[in-house]
Design a protein around this nucleic acid. Structure first.
Lengths: 165, 165
DNA sequence: GTCTAATTGAAAATGAATTTCATTTTCAAT
DNA sequence: ATTGAAAATGAAATTCATTTTCAATTAGAC
């Protein structure tokens, strides 16, 4: 599924890659886990793409590089990456969990086409401010939020409905 | 799971109930479906509660009134209610789809405690405005959005973590 | 190099959501 | 009231993403 991105997100540079690996390895050490080739390949593959990947999609990409890496390991590594802040889950409500990398990214949200699934990112500091304000108001220790807008993208609107309603 | 609500939402009155039934029946007629006792019971049960119900939770409530109604029928009726705007899905990312009734409700959003699951509603016209603005900017025909804030509620913060992290 | 604890990945399990299908019910036309 | 076609029902089966299990393998501290 196409994931168009109009954003500030440059492809991960060699230095960025190293920096991210460093964060990951430090996290592993901290929680008493080990450094493995599989985790390495998975992290690099994940950082190389700009897309919003499901576990299965990342697994397929990883497998192109090393056919011996299993789905379960990708699944578990994705959780680890989320733990140390390098990845975060984005829920587009299409039935699968998706992750995007969060390394050197500024806060953003998504607008998703309900017909073709394309997603575009947008920036809205107001929304971030709201999280903080509302949290304070209701005495919640607010840690995160989700905000997605759903609708028909221009192409799908012109083409007419593709999915049965 | 407790669903505290601090909102403008009065319990559905007898007249409201009739009005909602009217909307539902008109919708059924429009799409060539039939009026049945089960659908009646399910709609009434749904309107009687203020909670954010999963299909299974609604099924249990319905079963108290009529033990012969099946889970599948509740599941399907909930979809019908969503189709005609009487219900809408709310995703709290706890693994189950929840519905809340949307009859005579004004736009609102939810703040969810990640520890105990309590949810409180809040109102934020700014968010609704954003949907419209962003949609225009990116030439999307925006139809809906989701906005949830996650964090620790006051009680859970005081009590300390309950769930393993 | 040894040893222990962590890792791996195939397979199985889980569980919510959805579909199937034989039976029953609705409702419009008689 | 009767009929018959189309829709509804609900128990059971299926689907499918996610998560767990477990025996074999591997990392890395000593």
């Amino acid at each position: 599924m196409l994931q168009r991105r109009i954003d500030d997100h440059a492809p991960t540079t060699r230095e960025g890659m190293r920096e991210a690996q460093d964060i990951f390895y430090k996290h592993l050490k901290r929680v008493g886990l080990k450094h493995t080739d599989q985790r390495d390949i998975i992290l690099r593959t994940f950082l190389e793409t700009r897309d919003h990947l499901s576990t299965d999609e990342l697994f397929r990409l990883v497998r192109k590089k090393d056919a011996k890496v299993g789905f379960t390991t990708v699944y578990r590594t994705l959780k680890l990456l989320a733990e140390c802040g390098l990845a975060s889950e984005v829920a587009f409500h299409d039935g699968v969990a998706r992750y995007e990398h969060q390394f050197n990214r500024r806060s953003h949200h998504h607008m998703v086409c309900t017909d073709c699934g394309v997603s575009v990112e947008f920036f809205s500091p107001e929304v971030d401010k709201l999280e903080e304000e509302i949290g304070r108001k209701y005495h919640f220790d607010a840690t995160r939020h989700t905000f997605q807008i759903y609708g028909l993208c221009e192409d799908c609107r012109k083409r007419g409905p593709r999915k049965a309603v």
